[in-house]
C-alpha cells in the first residue's frame, strides 16, 4: 500500500521541478551570492576569487554621511503609505457602501480602480506634468485660491508628501474593492437586528459594519508591516532628482546608485543584504501576527 502511494505521488514531485529550479536560480542563488557583501567583489575574479574583507563594507556604509538619512526617509515614506493605504480605502468602501444605486457604485468603482493597472512610468510622466510649478494643473488650481506655485517634486518638504499622496491615489481603488467585498459578506440579519433595536444608519455603521470589517483591516495592517523598508522604488526612482535627495532618497534608490552607477558592487550588496535581513524579520513577524490575530495562513 505504502509503495503504491509513493508511486502514485511521484508526479507530484515531478510537477514541482520547474518551480524549484526557478526559485533555486533566481532566489536562492542570489542569496548565496549576497556573501559578496563581505568581500571586495571583483567582477573578473567572481564570488570565489574575490578577497574577503569581513565587515569593512558595512563600516564603509555606516560611515557615509547620508546613510542614516536614507533609512529615515524610507521609513517615513513607507509608514505613511502603509497607514494611508488602509485608512483611505476603508473610508471609501464605507462611503460607497452607503450608495443605494448599484449602478453608480459600479461606475465609481470602475474609475477609482483604474490607476492601479498603469505602470509607474506612465503615471510618473503624468505626475511630472500635473505637478509642474510653471504650468501644472495642480498649481493652476491652487493659483485660483491665491496660493503661490509649489515645486512639489523639487521641494524637500513636498517631495515625500507627493510620493505618499500619489501612491495612495494609485492604490486606493484596489483596496476599496477588497474592503467592499468584505462588507457585502456581513450577515444582513445583523443589520435587521440593529434596526429593531432602534439603531440608525450611523449607529449601524459603528456597531455592525466596522466590527464586520475589523478582521480584514487587521490582516491588511499586519501584512503592511512587512513593507516598512519598501518605500516604492518604481515610483520614487522615476520622480527623484538630486535636489531632493535629502528627503527623497530611499534604500532602494541608494542601492541602485551605489551598485549600478558607481559600480561599488560590494557596498551595494551590503546595503541590500541589510534590507533583505531586516525585511525578512518584519515580514516573518507580520505573518506570525496575522496567524495569531486573524487566523491567516500563507499556504
Amino acid at each position: 500500500m505504502n509503495k503504491r502511494k509513493l508511486k502514485r505521488n511521484l508526479p507530484l514531485h515531478l510537477m514541482l521541478i520547474p518551480g524549484i529550479i526557478i526559485s533555486l536560480i533566481f532566489v536562492y542563488l542570489p542569496l548565496v551570492g549576497s556573501v559578496m557583501a563581505f568581500q571586495d567583489y571583483n567582477p573578473i575574479k567572481g564570488f570565489f576569487g574575490s578577497e574577503w574583507v569581513g565587515l569593512k563594507n558595512f563600516e564603509f556604509i555606516a560611515a557615509l554621511p547620508g546613510t542614516f538619512q536614507v533609512l529615515r526617509n524610507t521609513i517615513y515614506i513607507a509608514f505613511f503609505k502603509i497607514v494611508g493605504n488602509i485608512i483611505v480605502p476603508v473610508t471609501f468602501a464605507l462611503l460607497l457602501n452607503e450608495l443605494r444605486s448599484n449602478k453608480s457604485k459600479r461606475v465609481l468603482q470602475t474609475f477609482i480602480y483604474m490607476p492601479n493597472f498603469l505602470s509607474w512610468i506612465i503615471l510618473s510622466g503624468i505626475i511630472m506634468d500635473l505637478f509642474s510649478p510653471s504650468d501644472g494643473l495642480v498649481n493652476n488650481i491652487l493659483g485660483v485660491f491665491g496660493i503661490e506655485p509649489i515645486f512639489f517634486l523639487g521641494d524637500k518638504f513636498w517631495f515625500p508628501v507627493t510620493m505618499i499622496v500619489t501612491d495612495i491615489w494609485k492604490g486606493f481603488g484596489f483596496g476599496t474593492v477588497i474592503y467592499l467585498a468584505a462588507l457585502t459578506n456581513i450577515d444582513p440579519s445583523l443589520y435587521e437586528a440593529a434596526m429593531i433595536d432602534g439603531a440608525g444608519r450611523w449607529k449601524q455603521t459603528i456597531h455592525v459594519t466596522l466590527p464586520g470589517m475589523a478582521p480584514i483591516v487587521i490582516l491588511m495592517t499586519v501584512l503592511g508591516l512587512g513593507n516598512i523598508l519598501n518605500a516604492g522604488f518604481d515610483q520614487i526612482f522615476n520622480l527623484l532628482g538630486p535636489a531632493v535627495y535629502d528627503t527623497g532618497d530611499v534604500i532602494d534608490t541608494f542601492i541602485y546608485r551605489l551598485g549600478m552607477i558607481q559600480a561599488q558592487y560590494s557596498a551595494s550588496a551590503a546595503v541590500g543584504l541589510f534590507k533583505s535581513v531586516v525585511s525578512f524579520l518584519f515580514v516573518s513577524l507580520s505573518y506570525l501576527l496575522a496567524d495569531k490575530l486573524a487566523n491567516y495562513r500563507i499556504f
Binding site: 559578496m36 542601492i255 551595494s268 550588496a269 541590500g272 543584504l273 505573518y287
Partner: peptide
Amino acid sequence: MLFVPSMIPSFIV
C-alpha cells in the same frame, strides 16, 4: 516570499 534578494547579486546571476 520572506527573503527578497537584492539587486546586485540578482544582476550578477
